[in-house]
Amino acid sequence: MATITTAQFRKGIFIEFKDEPHQIVDMQFVNPGKGGAFIRTKLKSVKSGRVQDFTFKSGESAVEVMVETHEMQYLYKEGESYVFMDNRSYEQYQIPKPMLGDFISFLKPNDVYQVLIHGDDAIGIRFPKKVYLKVTEAEEGARGNTVSGGGTKLVTVETGLKISVPLFIKSGDTVAIDPETGEYLERA
């Protein structure tokens, strides 16, 4: 536990809010005029996954909740939870769906992720900047396979997700995707 101020707020960190750990999932600075600056946050409860808005005064303090990161392999989905295994202890952890949010459409069995641990519970994962997924279904580019040409098409990747990619991407290619925006980044 450490007391921090809003200056140290970052997306992804965990803070105590109303006596419960919450993750900062989004933050925005607002400066509505006379009366100082504020930080608008979206806080996700680690217990319920419920997201609520709260606006802090700039400079207000909060208690940061320390989380550990363990490398774990994603195994399978069980009901509304996702099961991961610690590569060192072989212990299994379940992460409830709300804590993974949109990232569930990028999860690939057997891949290794940075899982966040608070106390005895897995409370989420540290989202990577890029995820690499194989294209399983793609139509041939209708307007020619030029690298520089504009235009996009929809392809399906191995997790079942559909994304928009340039025309030159073929079935079997591996593409890098930004999991935050779901946007195609590059051909790997």
Partner: peptide
């Protein structure tokens, strides 16, 4: 209401925090 009120907080700041929330 549960807001953290510091020593240096002035009327405008507190007004705005309630307004924004």
């Amino acid at each position: 209401k549960g807001y953290a009120i510091g020593k240096n907080d002035n009327w405008e700041e507190v007004f705005l925090q309630i307004f924004l929330n």
